[in-house]
Amino acid sequence: MIKYIVRRFLISVPVVWLITVASFTFIELAPGDAVSAMIMQTSSTSLGNISAAQLERLREMHGFNDPAYIRYFKWLKGLSEGNFGYRFRDRKPVAKLLVERIPMTLELMAVSLVIACFLGISLGVISALKQNTSIDYILTVLAFSGVSVPVFFIAMLAIFVFSLNLDLFPTSGARTPAVPFTYGDHIRHLVLPSLVMALVIMSDIMRYARASMLEVIREDYITTARAKGLSGWNVLIGHAFRNALLPLITIIALKLPWIFGGSAILETVFQWPGLGSLFVDAAIARDYYIIMAQLVVYGVAVLAAGLLADILYAVADPRIRYE
């Protein structure tokens, strides 16, 4: 097992390198150029006020005239030293931004994932056990709604009802500005975004949980367990539920990058200072360093999620033995 994990880690190293190549190439292929985007960001002067010669000098100064592979290695060297470039708007180092933002996104993800797993799995199992009853239908429509209604619209409705009309929670941000940080205040800010996100993730998990449970309760060993005279509850929890959970572990772990990415819109609506809102702002401003750095971060997240899925599955299912 340990050997397998170590080997997977080693295989991941060249993949991380490929991710950097892909991210760089992706930006490189794009039309438009970073210097002009930067000028529009850093100063109020429009491009018209800058002469061609000045533009050329700026390009030279920032090293944009070097061949692509040289710029790639410079950037890669920067990455290895923890230097991800800077934000055009205020020249803040991207590395510092990432360090600030990653914990915020992880916090939001973790809280909503816990709520979503708990509710999603329970409701999914209930739905499966009551298959084709009105409870099943209501839960199915609920699950479909959760994946069909745009997350930003749910977020807006939540703000409209709970913040603006009932005044229960703040509308946005992660803390009240100009007030000393307290956990109570932070948690009040966390409630709405994490619940909205949990609702969306829950809907997805519920559908898988239902399908998985339906499949398991038709297995022969369930019939055997019942035939042996075990009570319905014992069969469900001891035999069916545990086996139904197995595929869910992989599915949820593989969904992590999707949740990670999906948080971008949610964070923007709630102005939650996480990775997602940083990325959306960077995309709107065409801030190359941030986009490039974040593509690498998301790529690594996908890789880590795949690794996590495999390891969790091996831990949970003793039949699986990796050599």
Partner: peptide, 16 residues
Amino acid sequence: SLPTLIIVLASVALLG
């Protein structure tokens, strides 16, 4: 395995 939304966002940012 790509997080679709992120790639779409980045592509739209670059292509306009």
